[in-house]
Amino acid sequence: MYRASLKVIVVVTALLAAPTRVWSQASLEAVTDETSYNVGSQVRIRIVRVAPAAGASRAPDPASRQLVASVRYAGESEPVADAVRLPASIQPSGADPSSAYLDLWRIPQNARTGRYEVDLAETDANSHQAVWRLPRAASFVAYKKLVQIDEIKLEKAFYTSGDSVASMVRLRNLSDHPLAGLRVEFSKPVDAVTLDESLALPAGGAKEVRSERAAVAADVKQPTVAQYAVVVWDREHNNVLGIAFSPVVFIRPPGVDTPRPYAGPPGYPMQYLHPDLGSINTKAYRHFYPAELDSPAIQFDHGHTLFASGSEGTVRFSLRNPMSMPWHGVRVRTRLLSPEGVELRSTTLDESLDLEPGSGIEK
């Protein structure tokens, strides 16, 4: 009874003390919702409270304290956003930690690229003087990306060497001003086809660029995979404004139309791929592991190990006595297990089986 009462007392004490605590900078951490932002994006921040610092004081009036944040370019002291007041719901004097991200600063379109740092401070609401400061509580990177490649679509997923590869590329202007003279290229590692020599995009607008022959499927000796890149250059063809990659496609030599292992990226194993489920041969399949790893007494028939959904699966095996002495009263039981090891079915095939050395049965 005494122990239970003590637990209740401790909990109540903690709840009563929490609203009146003023946390020091050592008890706060801040994190932004992203590590990097394009200019024009909204930076959002979340305040995380950890254990209070040793010797943290208590304030008689926690509502008189205000948590503020400022943003400055790394290495500089002058803020680009100063004294941003954070809502009372995440004040260090509050009872519960905040899990919500709050708007901190929208990066101007003309902002410098590079790293920015966030400073925190707690000020007295009456004197407006800082009670404490926490420099470099968080940081983020601003970059400038003008063009976004939203989507790359290819006509199909399987090609034969020499086939034309048709494509559709959707591009979007992320800036607040028009862009003109953009060059859009569709390429393999060594060859490039120009999809548009002088593309114009309105501010914030998007366009689709289509080509019936953006590339030609490579001449391959065996089925393999391929991928294409879309590159957007500026008017002077000096700077890459955007780059993205197409979905992976499969290229087969002429006359090859049956499923075969395709060569994956370097260092990866061969892949068995099929155009659709109907093309999979479920009557026979490859051996999954070497025969020498099988039990000398139990041998499974690996001629049919893949079954279509909804069909009846039959597993065949043989049982042989590999020893030099006879077996008497052997019990044979089978169990069907799920991938998680849960037993789905259990069947006893024989309660008392006798087998002479070298003899066996099939089930």
Rank of each mutant, 00 (worst) to 15 (best):
H287L: 13
F288R: 04
G329T: 04
R331K: 07
P275W: 10
T314F: 11
Q271T: 12
H274M: 12
E236I: 01
I243W: 13
V230E: 04
V240S: 08
S352G: 14
D276C: 02
Y262T: 01
R335W: 02
Y285R: 02
P253L: 01
I280P: 13
H302P: 11
Y228E: 03
D294T: 15
F250D: 05
G313S: 10
I243H: 08
I251E: 00
G242C: 04
P269Q: 06
H287C: 00
R320L: 15
S338F: 00
M270K: 11
E340A: 06
P261Q: 10
H274N: 11
R286S: 05
P269H: 13
P290M: 09
P296H: 14
G341P: 07
P266L: 11
A308M: 04
G303K: 07
G341C: 09
L306Q: 11
G303L: 15
N238I: 04
W327C: 05
Y285P: 03
V330F: 12
P296D: 11
T305Q: 12
G341N: 02
D301M: 07
W233F: 14
I251W: 00
D234W: 15
Q271K: 09
R335S: 13
G329D: 05
P275R: 14
E312V: 08
P269R: 07
T348W: 01
D301Y: 14
A297L: 05
T334W: 06
A229D: 05
L293R: 03
P296S: 15
R333T: 12
L353T: 03
D294Y: 05
N238T: 05
G255M: 07
F245M: 01
A297N: 02
F300E: 12
P322M: 09
P247F: 15
E292N: 13
V231F: 01
E236P: 00
F250V: 10
S295C: 12
P339L: 10
R345G: 00
G278S: 13
A244N: 03
T348V: 14
H274E: 08
D350R: 02
W233G: 04
S338Y: 00
P339M: 08
S295M: 10
P326L: 09
V248C: 01
A297D: 04
D350S: 07
P253K: 01
P322D: 12
A297S: 04
G313I: 01
V232A: 09
P259F: 11
M323F: 15
L306V: 15
H304N: 10
L293W: 06
D257N: 07
V232T: 05
V232Y: 02
D294S: 07
D234I: 03
H287T: 02
G278I: 07
H287Q: 11
T347F: 15
A297V: 11
P275A: 09
P247A: 13
Y262N: 00
D301H: 12
N281V: 05
Y289K: 09
P290E: 06
G310S: 08
L353V: 02
A308E: 03
P265I: 04
L349H: 14
T334R: 09
T258D: 07
Y289G: 10
S324R: 01
L241K: 09
F307K: 03
R333N: 13
R252Y: 02
I298P: 00
T305W: 08
A263W: 13
E343K: 06
R333A: 14
V256E: 08
T258K: 07
L337G: 01
L336E: 03
E351F: 06
L319R: 02
V256H: 00
E351H: 08
F307P: 02
R316V: 06
T314G: 04
G242N: 01
P266W: 14
